[in-house]
Simulated scan of single mutants.
Amino acid sequence: MLTRRHFILTTTALFSSAIVAPVSAAPSSTSDRWAAWDAEVTPPDFDPARSNPWGLHPRFLPVRVEARDGLRAGDIHVDAIARYLYHIQGDGTAMRYGVAIGRGGLYAPGRFTVGRKAKWPSWTPTQNMIRREPETYAQFAGGMPPGPMNALGSRALYLYVGNRDTYLRIHGTPFPRSVGMRASSGCVRMVMAHINGLYDRVDTGVTAHLYPAEESVTARS
């Protein structure tokens, strides 16, 4: 059985710097619009290891750590207790990011497959969300178009069990200060500037392990 304590050994080097190029302020196509939105949610002179206009605890900034032997490169592991997402690399390391998880009993641990990915996705709340909080979600029953204030943010990884969409996502959030908290309706939230970097490195078909939020429960491997 694989628990949250098994797969990370020690913190090592930080991300290298990445600079975002200027983008036109007058997008004329979908790709231009996406690029403009990416620039809007990315701090100037963005360095993933140091840029922190959101006021996050420094431990939630991206960092490279050493991973336990035997973990499959490309897979994702979410430590719900520490509020970390680990993306396993092929060189024995993992990239670690801060996340927010589902509040109360809405977080759903388990083993999932990344069934698809989307840049600047649209979003529609589930019927359960609308029933649970109609004052918040009923207004979006017809869907919310893409954009920086969309609930899924800039990127989304869609979690499946077999061919079934679970409606769980790993996604960006327009509320970056929620990272480190139990804040969502079940999904795993990330800072948009962080998931933008993760997104391009994650392939569809990889496994996402979401570990329980209770110390006494052992996650499935």
Rank of each mutant, 00 (worst) to 15 (best):
M1E: 10
L2I: 14
L2H: 07
T3G: 12
R4D: 05
R5M: 03
R5L: 07
H6A: 10
F7Y: 12
I8E: 03
T10D: 01
A13F: 14
A13C: 04
S17P: 05
S17Q: 10
A18V: 07
A18Q: 07
V20H: 13
A25V: 08
A26Q: 15
P27N: 07
S28P: 01
S29G: 13
D32G: 13
D32R: 09
R33F: 15
A35L: 14
W37I: 12
D38K: 01
A39Q: 08
T42L: 03
F46Q: 00
F46V: 01
P48A: 03
P48T: 03
A49V: 03
P53D: 04
W54H: 09
G55R: 03
L56N: 05
H57D: 03
F60M: 02
L61W: 05
P62G: 01
P62C: 02
V63F: 10
R64M: 04
A67R: 00
R68N: 02
R68E: 02
A82M: 02
R83F: 13
R83H: 14
Q89M: 07
G92E: 00
T93R: 09
A94P: 13
A94G: 10
Y97L: 02
G98D: 11
G98T: 08
V99Q: 08
I101R: 01
G102C: 13
G105R: 01
L106R: 15
G110K: 02
F112W: 05
V114D: 00
G115A: 02
R116A: 01
K117E: 00
K119V: 11
P121W: 12
S122F: 11
T126I: 15
Q127H: 14
N128K: 13
N128H: 10
N128V: 05
N128W: 08
R132I: 06
P134F: 13
P134V: 07
P134I: 06
E135S: 08
E135H: 10
Y137P: 02
A138E: 02
A141W: 10
G142D: 02
G142N: 05
P145A: 04
G147R: 06
P148Q: 03
N150S: 13
N150K: 07
N150H: 07
A151V: 12
L152F: 15
L157F: 14
L157W: 11
L159D: 03
V161E: 09
N163F: 06
R164G: 03
D165R: 05
L168G: 10
I170F: 15
H171R: 09
G172N: 06
G172I: 12
P174K: 14
P174Y: 15
F175S: 09
S178T: 15
S178F: 13
V179A: 02
R182H: 11
A183L: 11
A183M: 14
S184C: 11
V188Y: 08
R189S: 14
M190G: 08
V191D: 05
M192R: 00
H194Y: 12
D203K: 03
V206L: 05
H209C: 14
L210N: 07
Y211G: 04
P212E: 14
E215T: 06
E215I: 13
V217K: 09
T218G: 11
R220G: 06
